[in-house]
Design a protein around this nucleic acid. Sequence first.
DNA 1: TAGATTGTTAATCGATTAACAATC
DNA 2: TAGATTGTTAATCGATTAACAATC
Lengths: 210, 210
Amino acid sequence: MPPATVARLPGYLRALEATAASGAVLTSSEELARRAGVTSAQLRKDLSHLGSYGRRGVGYDVQHLREQITVALGLSDVRRVLLVGVGNLGHALANYAGIAERGFALVGLVDADPAVVGTTVAGLVVEPADDLAGVVARTGATIAVLTTPAEVAQRVCDELVAAGVVGVLTFAPGALRVPPHVDVRAVDVASELQILAFHDRARGAGGGAS
Amino acid sequence: MPPATVARLPGYLRALEATAASGAVLTSSEELARRAGVTSAQLRKDLSHLGSYGRRGVGYDVQHLREQITVALGLSDVRRVLLVGVGNLGHALANYAGIAERGFALVGLVDADPAVVGTTVAGLVVEPADDLAGVVARTGATIAVLTTPAEVAQRVCDELVAAGVVGVLTFAPGALRVPPHVDVRAVDVASELQILAFHDRARGAGGGAS
DNA sequence: TAGATTGTTAATCGATTAACAATC
DNA sequence: TAGATTGTTAATCGATTAACAATC
């Protein structure tokens, strides 16, 4: 399955859920693509990698396609997620309902700050960072969300990987080095803004006359 | 400039800042690539689009390259950023120091909740959502960060665009429709986790025997 | 000069797009 | 059957990689 396709599947899943909520039983590549913000050709091509069973002349069964994508993404089993770094951002993410809604269980919170350890956030007691391996083992977490300061991100990541985590979503700026069997996704807010600045640049810095 | 290159420039900038902090005056494509997590061939290729002036046999002048990338990304002028949606996540982002550190000015906060409007967050007074156009005009914001509930994201986005915003960074799940002159970057935490789940999937759901 | 390292070229690879035959 | 819509094919496009000539 092409990586670019995998990266779009969550968007299709969401679009399907919106379609299902509207009560529709069937949908078309045209409608679904519009909702997901891609072309219908792209959508059909992507779904073809799933060995999808739409019906020519008819369209896709909403619930069936939803299940197909859910299985393909590996969301049939609930994945256990550990969050490391309960600062402002970590706190916000821990309380983010979308995580549980979309098939994940937040099973642990870890922080290095003694003032934070022991407090309850999102129904979980924050555990100390010096027992990272223990927390991973006890919770069975396979995915970690990293919201630590950039300076410690690599070290924490190394410990997580050593403890058995195979997927890391990091919000710390800077590249993380991991072994080949581990998957890293990086969200860097400042980088995103800088990319937007690039496009803004061409349009003049003054805000423009209307 | 290829989009893929633009998307990597912020990473190079950050790598250069780390290099500068270490006191080095010169660097090589090899070293910089290692820091940025790409190959040296990729880095040189990317920099070639800047018309970069490294010196063969010598390397790159750290400060000079830093300025080149800063100019290329349009970061010579400070971009004004407006944040809409001061919930958990919006609050965290408003207080995120990295935004100011990396060349942006947070110039306004907006929320629809009367209980939040009027409070001070990150040194700014939260303004009411019904005056979105006015806030954009007064602040001269060209970039907006969207941390509203998904249900209102499209409507808020439309208003921002109508008011003159040309770049939107959205954290709300779901595709945003915008006119061609507007640039959207989307961060979807749940989608990122689902992509990680895909890779986790292949490795078995049990946590694995060690 | 000899060693190092860039900038560029050419080859490869993967992703997107458009068109249409298959088929419901 | 006629109309609709998929799944697939082939063409295009863009991005990555590897190698090396240029040159400091």
